[in-house]
């Protein structure tokens, strides 16, 4: 709650200082130009944002996040990393939604390589963000190029994470609760 307001306040302050700087340094015409560009962006992304929020809310009702974890254990090999990558890309919503899901997956048995692949696939290649933001704003060619270059990274990171001697278990997480419904 507090964190959300903090984000809003910080962003508002940054926006206001940028607005003042544009007025002082670039003049009124540039200021108006920026506002027009903003309006254009809002018109571009509003329909897909509403659709995207509806989609993520509906998916949350349909798919229990722990359901996929049994394919993501330490012995799951490359297939586990691929499942984790696909799940991460399909994971809708922002960090508020995604990081708790990592914890759920970990408690349900996913290994650290799969967890890292999941986080990276979500943050790099989450399809919701691509459809809502990247495609409408930056265009098909750029979005495809970016996706193509990002596609192998989650699997690479997962392999590296399995190889690195850094252990992490759900008990290390501050948000860890020894849930009674563990391993659902």
């Amino acid at each position: 709650m507090l964190r959300r307001h903090a984000t809003f306040i910080v962003i508002s302050l940054l926006t206001l200082s940028a607005a003042v700087a544009v007025l002082l340094l670039r003049g009124e015409a540039a200021f108006r130009h920026a506002l027009e560009a903003t309006w254009g962006l809002i018109v571009t992304v509003a329909p897909s944002i509403i659709g995207g929020l509806l989609l993520s809310a509906a998916l949350r009702q349909l798919v229990p996040p722990g359901a996929l974890a049994r394919w993501m254990g330490a012995e799951s090999g490359l297939r586990g990393l691929l499942v984790a990558t696909a799940a991460g890309m399909a994971m809708p919503g922002g960090p508020v939604a995604a990081f708790p899901v990592v914890l759920v997956l970990a408690q349900a048995g996913a290994d650290r390589g799969a967890l890292i692949a999941f986080v990276l696939a979500w943050s790099l290649n989450g399809f919701q963000r691509i459809l809502v933001w990247e495609l409408p704003i930056l265009g098909t060619d750029f979005a495809l190029l970016r996706l193509l270059c990002g596609l192998p990274l989650p699997v690479l990171a997962g392999l590296l994470a399995r190889w690195l001697p850094i252990r992490w278990t759900p008990e290390d997480a501050p948000a860890f609760k020894p849930a009674p419904d563990k391993g659902q």
């Binding site: 990274l153 990171a157 994470a161 690195l164 850094i166 252990r167 948000a175």
Partner: peptide, 15 residues
């Protein structure tokens, strides 16, 4: 705050 410093260390080293 959700996953802790060790997870971040692991994720950043791997990526």
């Amino acid at each position: 705050p959700i996953l802790g410093p060790r997870f971040i260390l692991l994720r950043l080293s791997a990526s």
